[in-house]
Design a protein around this nucleic acid. Sequence first.
DNA 1: AATTATTTTGTAATCATTACATTTAATGAA
DNA 2: TTCATTAAATGTAATGATTACAAAATAATT
Lengths: 152, 152
Amino acid sequence: MIKHNEIERENIMKIMSIPEIKEYLNNNGIKPSLPRIKIFEYLNNYKSHPTADEIYLALIDELITLSKTTVYNTMDLFLKHNIIIQILIEENEIRYDSLTSNHGHFKCIKCNKIYDFKYDLADISIKELNGFSLNEYHTYIKGICKNCSENK
Amino acid sequence: MIKHNEIERENIMKIMSIPEIKEYLNNNGIKPSLPRIKIFEYLNNYKSHPTADEIYLALIDELITLSKTTVYNTMDLFLKHNIIIQILIEENEIRYDSLTSNHGHFKCIKCNKIYDFKYDLADISIKELNGFSLNEYHTYIKGICKNCSENK
DNA sequence: AATTATTTTGTAATCATTACATTTAATGAA
DNA sequence: TTCATTAAATGTAATGATTACAAAATAATT
Ligand SMILES: [Mn+2]
Ligand SMILES: [Mn+2]
Ligand SMILES: [Zn+2]
Ligand SMILES: [Zn+2]
């Protein structure tokens, strides 16, 4: 179970080939079964931050025996091995992201697309949190994306 | 329906008396019925950022006919009139906050307490979001609070 | 091949939230 | 005050995402 370094983490969002995904899962202690590979591929190589249901619907045509339970099980497994994170933006829906390094999300309320952005909350000193130990940062912003503003 | 200014907003988190809550609801176009007053009082004067269920359980002894539906209806009404916000920290649970001005939340993973902190994301320029219009900022941090660290 | 462990699946249960229809309370003419 | 109208609160049932659980399929090991 090799620990990945920062440079490798930065690369996670790059599109990965099937052999690369296999190796990545192996390196993180996950046996790369077909559903796991395909689910990770979809998560990592497709632009969106999908829900479990979206993953299921995207893959069911190809993996015709896939069950939703498998998607949920796989998400739990990926979470346990820290190769994905959950993101909460709308109530009652969990989205998943294979980019695990700290970054923010922007959700456009017109086209519903979720954009990543870099930022570091550690830059800001928060006096109310002196003496606290901060482990996980989450930030999301809602608004209207550039594309939707222009195409009025 | 009077528009409140910044100074008034800053005061929201201050503990409010029943007559003050009545006036506040009236000023925001909400008829101050007993359940509404009590729910807002609990939300505003009690430290926590409760779920609908926590509000219900906290008030049912006093308002013995209160229904959970009323709590949800009231939350929707308060949201529509912008006197509360929703906060999402854990999956599948919606919490509510009567402090509507932009601020962050810290959730301690030991004692589960949720702390407020001030900060302004607008201070940070995010180059990926040039040309986007940003409407709502949400930030939460998870970790261990000072109190829980000290009482090891 | 037979045995054992792992992975995947289908079905049923859970639980927060929502929908809806009914009851209760408040308002406001007559 | 009484009657009619509107608003508020309630109880019950439905929804829908997630989880629990046990069986079936697959892979690994002997
Ligand atoms: Mn992301
Ligand atoms: Mn708060
Ligand atoms: Zn958009
Ligand atoms: Zn604590």
